[in-house]
Amino acid sequence: MSLYYSFTKWTVTPPTPRTWTGIGNYTDAFTNIFFRRAAVTSIVMTVTAVVLSVLLGTLIALLLDRKFFGQGFVRTLILTPFLIMPVVAGLVWKNQMFSAAFGVLNWVLNQVGIESIEFATKYPRWAIVGVLVWQWTPFMMLIILAGLQGQSSSVLEAAKVDGASPRATFFQITLPHLRPYIELGVLLGSIYLIQVFDHIFVMTGGGPQSTNIPLFVYQRSIGGGWRFGSASAFSIVVVVATIILATFGLRVLSGLLEGEEA
């Protein structure tokens, strides 16, 4: 359906008859500077947020994969951001952490002698990436922790007996073992983060730096533009891009299912 609309010129308000425009909307999509900017924003946000949360998640997982007092409690604390409603996460960070006037982050900066910065308006893209990383690091951490705890202890002991340094053990045994888990984290993170809408909607409402594709399509159609034809073309472009991502994704998943008997 979306495919059909994408070949038409159709504005809902004011209502105009649907007319066939062929590939016009597509040439528009590729020449439209705002769409290209939204695409760049989508890619930059997704890639940085996924990379940062996987890195942080791995480090924290390594930190938690030891026995210490309150291990379960600390894991629960770190898990919490992931459970927060995305809308709430965006609002809390914008108004209570990033805010120049009353934000806790700026209060800390002031204590060390740096002037307040209104993060959400000055660096909208990075402010949003920050919140995304805060919400997704726990997820990555849990996946990688599950991987770490699935390591066979006999292999690690053998390495120790053979005199391998902790460093060598990590890079030559642990990291290769974690690879499928990291792949899974990257895959799931990308699927969810490419669709991010809520955080941006409540934090900036889509300024020049922070409009990604979902928000852009929304602004063009239901959010006020009501140009369903061209908005459909934009979404078809997204679908094609996603199919490429999904092909890669399905391969990762089927790799994980290998060896499991029917």
Binding site: S2, Y5, I191, Q195, F228, S235, A246
Partner: peptide
Amino acid sequence: FISTKFLPIVAAILPLWI
């Protein structure tokens, strides 16, 4: 089943709305 999850909802939102 899972491939349906790969499709961003934004691509389907206009038909859904209609």
